[in-house]
Amino acid sequence: MKPHLTNQAAGKGDLTDPKLAKTAEAEAIERAKQGDEAAFEVLYNLHKRRVYSLCLRMVSNPAQAEDLAQEAFLQLFRKVGTFRGESAFSTWLHRMTVNVVLMNLRKKGLPVVSLEETIETDEESPKKELGGPDLKLAGSLDRLQLQRAIEKLPPGYKTIFVLHDVEGFEHNEIATMVGCSIGNSKSQLHKARLKLRDYLKFMRAEKAEKQ
């Protein structure tokens, strides 16, 4: 008998209460260890959006992001029997997802840390952008534009920005995962934000021109 582990119970938006979601997750983990398909699906539904979104933002290609999300979940489910609950399941999954994505980027020869780091000079300083009152990003940002701007970031900047600002990892965690120094992570994050600011202002100006 498995009264709680239905598709309806989790992952379809019904479990908005974090406590309920946690309980369903804990129960699903135990059942998944027994090979219960519904439990695997509950775990998948609970985390699919975040895992897929992370992959999509890192690789900017929906089909590839789905393959990576699939690989991350498979790796996780193969190891679910070893999960002892010392850390949060979501942390475990998201670290695994990041590793899968980074491994994929490395395989393709794409830099996980930006190569621009070593060659950028003060010419790229944001100072030249200051004082343009017409282009201020005051108020709120258009999320679609922000998504597009993130897609345009160079791979290295994108990795650090997504991990820190979107996913909420700390610089020390990023440094370990990506294989760079904490200072490097901070510096690249800053440059990524500056680039995004430039892109967004450009998009805003372009939109204003069209109108």
Binding site: K48, R49, R50, V51, Y52, S53, L54, L56, R57, A65, E66, A69, L137, S140, L141, R143, L146, Q147, I150, F161, D165, V166, E167, G168, R193, L196, R197, L200
Partner: peptide, 16 residues
């Protein structure tokens, strides 16, 4: 603002 808005994107996409 960019940093804050970026965090709102965390779960914005659904896999097929």
């Amino acid at each position: 603002l960019i940093s804050i808005e970026a965090h709102q994107l965390v779960e914005s996409n659904e896999p097929s």
